[in-house]
Design a protein around this nucleic acid. Structure first.
Lengths: 222, 222
DNA sequence: CGCGCATTCGGTAGTATTACTGAAAAGCTG
DNA sequence: CAGCTTTTCAGTAATACTACCGAATGCGCG
């Protein structure tokens, strides 16, 4: 009751890859990397999203390795279209951003993988093989944003929260009212209120519901 | 400014794999598959979660390929412990279930991949290579539940919320106070309060901060 | 049609949170 | 030591939310 969707090609035949990036230099670099691998074959190159879509429809590659930021039509929109017209082609997005919002958008557009441009040739090949085999591949840096964080390296904190504030935030996010937070930390309710207000100040004027998100982003919940 | 966390081993050296499954037959099958691959080396085998953890600490494998359902200590708890004591070891979970809840639990326990037992040898090897290289790998069937769909159906709702309640929940989770939710939906504050209280009733007596989590679980936020 | 359910709204009361201002003690740093 | 941050706590007032109560409308279903 699963098993439709992309690829799942026969092993034996090489993986047919279509490259899409507006920078020739980048395409050259990638092609150079991929040409050394027997199992991979670069069947075409596109310089923008629209070209990527039409070339993909013509060539029907196993994998479309595509940059997100391109002129005419960006990779996001292109990914959407390819996923519709060519469900057999796995879209693997290549980007310089490890921004969570960005990653989310990309995978929702139907990409089956997201890799960063600073990865090694080995990893790039693995990623291509992965999506071509029918799986999903994500670079280490973007994985946590997908699975809801909890990596181990405590995400560094863009808000500049103090230790105490993190403790309070954690307790609040777990659903405790100020009174119980106070009891848990052995401080007065007023103090908890102070921290709470400082938190709202620091993270932006978000309400209680939103504090959960922040706590989660900071990995305070596990 | 990323790059800590697991693996990211040198290419050249073989990937050291620790197998954990309570069925000898399964272990034998997997080992047979992996032994044919030069880049992979099975360095040990465990028959339950506790054994997997202690063997992992001793052998420090690149990848721990582990079943979820095992006696003594299940794979979920084992994954958590390994992630704490051995951040360098990538946990790749092997399971027969493509149940969304299950997958979520597993990745939140820190697994860097989730594959189904019915996959091909090729895909299993790709998956192992993927997590060993520092990436995240997910089988085709479980990927959609991770990325929040775009492929499959809108996560079914264990709470039995109504359409209107979902709208209200969504607005609350986005951080709006009742007053603004009312304005947005064109209803009175009292009605929003009703919905809010009904929501708390339905999802359990969680507070405002926790409502965010529910909204997220239900995919109301994107 | 009567019943249940979703949706809407009101009253009243109490609790919680926010928005201010102000301040004291502890610790670190130049 | 003076200045800084962190953490602590207080007063006061407004706003928001919770916990109950009850009730009207509309809609589908047996």
């Amino acid at each position: 009751m699963h098993s439709h969707s992309p690829a799942r090609r026969q092993s034996g035949k090489p993986v047919r890859v279509l490259l899409a990036d507006d920078h020739e230099l980048v395409r050259d670099g990638i092609r150079a990397r991929l040409q050394k691998v027997a199992d991979l074959e670069v069947v075409g190159e596109a310089t923008n999203g629209r070209e990527a879509v039409s070339l993909a429809e013509e060539l029907r590659p196993d994998v479309l390795l595509m940059d997100v930021s391109m002129p005419v039509m960006n990779g996001l929109e292109a990914a959407r279209q390819v996923r519709k017209s060519l469900p057999e082609t796995a879209v693997l997005v290549l980007s310089v951003y490890d921004n969570p919002e960005y990653v989310r958008g990309v995978v929702q557009a139907g990409a089956r993988g997201y890799i960063l441009k600073d990865i090694s040739a080995t990893e790039m090949i693995t990623a291509i093989t992965s999506v071509a085999t029918g799986g999903y591949y994500f670079s280490a840096a973007v994985g946590p944003t997908l699975v809801g964080a909890a990596t181990s390296a405590p995400v560094e904190d863009p808000y500049g929260l103090t230790e105490r504030e993190r403790q309070v935030l954690s307790a609040i996010a777990r659903g405790q009212p100020n009174k119980e937070v106070a009891k848990e930390l052995g401080i007065s309710v007023r103090t908890v209120e102070s921290h709470r207000l400082n938190l709202r100040e620091k993270v932006g004027n978000k309400n209680a519901a939103q504090l959960y998100k922040v706590a989660q982003d900071l990995g305070l919940l596990d």
